[in-house]
Design a protein around this nucleic acid. Sequence first.
DNA 1: TTGTACGCGTTATCAC
DNA 2: GTGATAACGCGTACAA
Lengths: 342, 342
Amino acid sequence: MADNILPEIKGQWVTSYDVARYAGVSQSAVSRCFKPGASVSKKMRERVMRAADELGYQPNAIARSLITRRSNLVGVILSDFTNLHYPEVLFELNQEFSKHAVHILLFTLRQERDIDEIIQQVFQYQVEGVVVASTLSLEQIDRFVKRNLPLLFFNRTIQDRSVNSVCCDQEAGERILVNSLVNAGHKLFGLISGPEDSLVSVQRTFGARDRLARLGFDDVPIVQGDYTYESGQQGLRELMKHFDNGPDAVLCANDIMAVGCMDAARNEFSLRVPDDISIVGFDGIAPALWSGYDLTTIRQPVQRMAEAAVEMVMERVDHPDKTPEMRVFSGVLQSGNSARIA
Amino acid sequence: MADNILPEIKGQWVTSYDVARYAGVSQSAVSRCFKPGASVSKKMRERVMRAADELGYQPNAIARSLITRRSNLVGVILSDFTNLHYPEVLFELNQEFSKHAVHILLFTLRQERDIDEIIQQVFQYQVEGVVVASTLSLEQIDRFVKRNLPLLFFNRTIQDRSVNSVCCDQEAGERILVNSLVNAGHKLFGLISGPEDSLVSVQRTFGARDRLARLGFDDVPIVQGDYTYESGQQGLRELMKHFDNGPDAVLCANDIMAVGCMDAARNEFSLRVPDDISIVGFDGIAPALWSGYDLTTIRQPVQRMAEAAVEMVMERVDHPDKTPEMRVFSGVLQSGNSARIA
DNA sequence: TTGTACGCGTTATCAC
DNA sequence: GTGATAACGCGTACAA
């Protein structure tokens, strides 16, 4: 008996052996009792469970992972945590993965150059898959391919390589915005893009410019921002120089810049939104809905996208040779009061 | 040679044995080469590293954890991810932990009742410590104590139990706000609290009410919110009923409600902020700084708090019997344009 | 400095 | 249904 309490007293971890000894059964019996579909007698299960409870035993997931070769861990790599959109993505991914009893190992990068090191760490922890919302080089992608480790890009696609990805249709979203603005009679357009190394920004900006061109609006001025509030303000300042009385409508590559743009329009240029100028964004982050802004934007179906992402990753955990797939979801127009549209 | 390439072909993981065989050395030699301060000859190290590179070998962190009894994993349990404050906390914690080569296993709760299950999972994954920004029962705390597992509360303290915690001084923050508002001549105060099970809210609301009482303002009406934007709007609606012409100043238990309150004041009651009504919040989230709101608030020193939290956890990982400690940081007044103060 | 042998805590595979 | 025993991949005494 004194022997049984030993592990507790020593402050050590309680192992299945301790439970087995305490319950007077074999260690394998203990193991089986904690395995869902195992064949154990009622009597045995009850006996073991009581012993486990008394000793405070929990199976060691690390040891289990070693033998089952399943860590139940996935890596999530996020670059831009200041963009309010990503915390929401992370939350939804976590909710979905937890339905599969899979846990998230989180990696955030301050600098892009960290990513090689992070990939190493991801490999070391034997994650079963990785969701990336950041840019990877072809070499980096190949490291995943070589390992047969499921990799899924969230809101980015890779040219020259077929990869798994879940995206919001950036171009279609911009088309909707442009169409609405043109239909409402806007004539003088300006764009504020994101960083040039952001594919999402490239797609959104291209989508808007292309659609505008097709509708007869050429040479629309484009100012480059960096997704931040301040760069939205600065973007408008620069755009103003291209017009005598400012633009009719400004399309921003994300909501945060659109908000900055709105504030600059109101405070610095005394423009009424949307009477004097229409401003639209992209993402559908919560603060953009606050009635102080009430932004017209394209809301990304984050939950659906997260569901799809998790589903795709888990499919490929079980069937690593499944062919790469790209799933594109349409954003929905969230019609606020920051733009004059029908 | 054909044998050496085998692991790659078979799509299996490359182990230290594979590297050893390929390099013609023992497995322990490989192991040593990957251990920082080990004694290995230049020649051996070079030889092993080249083999490892060629085979794409990375040490298995799970197997390593099993033998070293150090998982280099910590759990972070967050309840309220919609509160924009917590993503920032998570980001800073991750930055700090990564300096110690420690990784975060993330748990978010949709419902409080999930927490027992989450604690189980945390234990199973052999995390070396846990940071909690959520309420735990005494029984739940005891489970950590019994395991000798370092537990740290972020922005909450527990009555009747000495625990590790890092907090922002909620009451002091509210005192600063109240003093400023009173000095500026405000007379008719209203409070919007958070959920009643939120200790942070209780402390903030108490801090404000208590300071107001000491300054001669008794029976200040308190309306209960739930930290959301909508409840901030609703809070003002209810507060308005307590005054003929509305309150002078409203103190909200967090920034998001303050923003909702501002919008309701402007849009629903045509009040000018801050001329007709002063509104203040607490936290210092990024959107509150946007000039559309320019909220006067108490900014939590999130980075400092995260540094302290990580430091305390890591100290207790190495010295589990270190006595519990509580570190309280002062927030700083962020003087915006939502309140008339000196 | 290097190699041998063992153990970390679990699941899986067998006999029984 | 139950109990021995062998892995899983690594770190580390210990011997050489």
